[in-house]
């Protein structure tokens, strides 16, 4: 069985993140890039399945500029068997339509029994790419699951939406997106880091993805019109409680007509 995990390089959420005001795209020079933690958890989910069944092959797939090879390297050092890097200048600032069509083409080429992604990235926060890939590939999608198991030829999980918690399942091949409810990712071991260098990484441009890309070509696109930085919020100097802060707060809330 082959599991392909979608991983993403994102700006570190511990730092201020910056958009280029003219394009509305990420200013990649402004902050450190890290592997999005939710995609590390997706990889952990795949590796946990591989721990129980050594015949499973785990492949990490990412789309991003040259430096995103660092994300693949991290995945390999954690235990993935191989990596695929989609890199092409024409993909800079890709919208969800282009992103999902490109990922779907690569997945169509690579072939997977199970695709695992994070539920939403910390930079885009769309949470739509897994469903879009599923539609491109004609696959069932179990999105936002917090538990995951393979049961014969089905994948099964627990899914909590705003209105219900459900047990959901789908026949393989399928795509799954996982939430933070899944276990934390493992750390790369020394052996893993050393072994990562010998593992195969394929790098594909858009031209390499033809003709698979033709199967998922899109007509429409979403474009950014304006991008504006909002003034930062400045707090008031805090008061130190001298025994009456609760009463003062009640007065403040009343004065602001909040109670």
């Amino acid at each position: 069985m082959r599991i392909i995990v979608l991983i993403k390089h994102v700006p570190d959420t511990w730092e201020e993140r910056v958009l280029d005001p003219t394009t509305g795209r990420l200013d990649r020079s402004a902050s450190e890039r890290v592997v999005d933690e939710i995609t590390e958890r997706a990889l952990e989910a795949a590796l946990a399945l591989k721990d129980r069944d050594k015949s499973i092959e785990v492949v990490a797939l990412t789309m991003g500029p040259g430096e995103s090879s660092g994300a693949i390297k991290k995945a390999l050092s954690m235990g993935a068997d191989a990596g695929i890097h989609l890199v092409d200048d024409a993909l800079a600032g890709a919208d969800a339509m282009t992103t999902s069509a490109t990922l779907a083409a690569a997945l169509r080429d690579a072939g997977a029994d199970l695709i695992i992604a994070g539920n939403e990235s910390t930079d885009g926060r769309g949470g739509v790419i897994p469903a879009m890939i599923a539609e491109h590939l004609g696959l069932p999608a179990l999105t936002f699951v917090s538990e995951l198991a393979i049961d014969g030829d089905r994948v099964r999980g627990e899914r909590a939406t705003e209105t219900a918690t459900s047990i959901v399942s789908a026949p393989l091949p399928a795509i799954v997106s996982i939430t933070e409810g899944m276990p934390e990712p493992r750390f790369p071991s020394f052996k893993g880091i050393m072994g990562a260098k010998k593992k195969p990484v394929a790098s594909h441009s858009l031209a390499d993805l033809e003709p698979a890309l033709a199967g998922s070509r899109q007509g429409a696109s979403s474009i950014v019109l304006t991008c504006e930085q909002r003034p930062g919020r400045t707090g008031a100097e805090p008061i130190v409680d001298e025994g009456d802060a609760g009463t003062q707060l009640a007065a403040f809330l009343a004065q602001q007509r909040l109670v």
Partner: peptide
């Protein structure tokens, strides 16, 4: 932009050749 509707929106955009703007 709920969990249920995001799946619907994403698939729909692909199916009808539209484009998605989220959140």
């Amino acid at each position: 932009h709920s969990i249920e509707s995001r799946d619907v929106a994403g698939r729909l955009a692909v199916r009808v050749g539209g484009a998605l703007a989220w959140d």
